[in-house]
Amino acid sequence: MKTSRLSLWIFLSPVLMWLVLLIVLPHLDLFIMSFRAKDEYGRMGFSLQNYVHFFEEPIYWLTFVRTAVYSVITTFFTFLLAMPVAFYIVKVVRPKYKGFLMVLLLLPFWVSELVRVYGWMILLRESGVVNFFLLKLGIVDAPLKMLYTDATMIMGLVYTSMLFMVVPVISVLESLDDSLIEAASDLGGSKISIWREIILPHCKPGITSGAIVVFMLSLGNYLTPNLMGGKNSLWFTEQIYNQFIASFNWNQGAAFGFLLLLLSSGIIWAGLKLSRVKLGEVAS
């Protein structure tokens, strides 16, 4: 349809302002700042020092690698847990319970992440609810240390990002015709072969978009690693926070931020390439 130029500008100008002023310029600034540092006379200038510093200090790049690896692990466990739940809701449970289960599934994720993490803290800490029951039932003699371990932190990350895997997987499973599974079964397929050859290939786009979002959210998460992980700043976002707020070294922080951005976009790009899904499809 032919439309007037006026309407285009009315729609586009706020969008352009948003994208240029709040997305493009700040990230360009981040990029530029990461290449600036004080030289030996205390003057600001172009320098690779922030990046050199990152590779020279093992604590920095180890944290970086650790964050990436743990995010991958989180994504994998989220998938393992989300897939059967989604399958149950779409294909196994009686249709009349489906709507109710969907509501139940989504509800916790509307609640602030902080509240959810806090809930886990009062459940799992040494004076927490789980230890109270374990002691009371005589299963253990002394309270278990469950909070502030890596396993708990990963569980917390899985819990936090669950929704973003379950929802896309449910929507692709909805589009899987039951008769495909019936046909595969009729032709002699076992459960395993049906999963491998019919269900998983069909769900690939949903799994990809879920995995990308979960990975990105874990990578950029600050609250869960900070409150449920160990106390010694071993998540990369905590390093960024320290540079910005504690050491007030913004240039170093900008370099870290840029590296994290590079890692997350790199993995997302690779994920999209491998599964041949477009970013626009992930978004919808």
Partner: peptide
């Protein structure tokens, strides 16, 4: 099957 159920993948 009625709608054939050929595996699109």
């Amino acid at each position: 099957f009625q709608h054939l159920a050929l595996f699109p993948m």
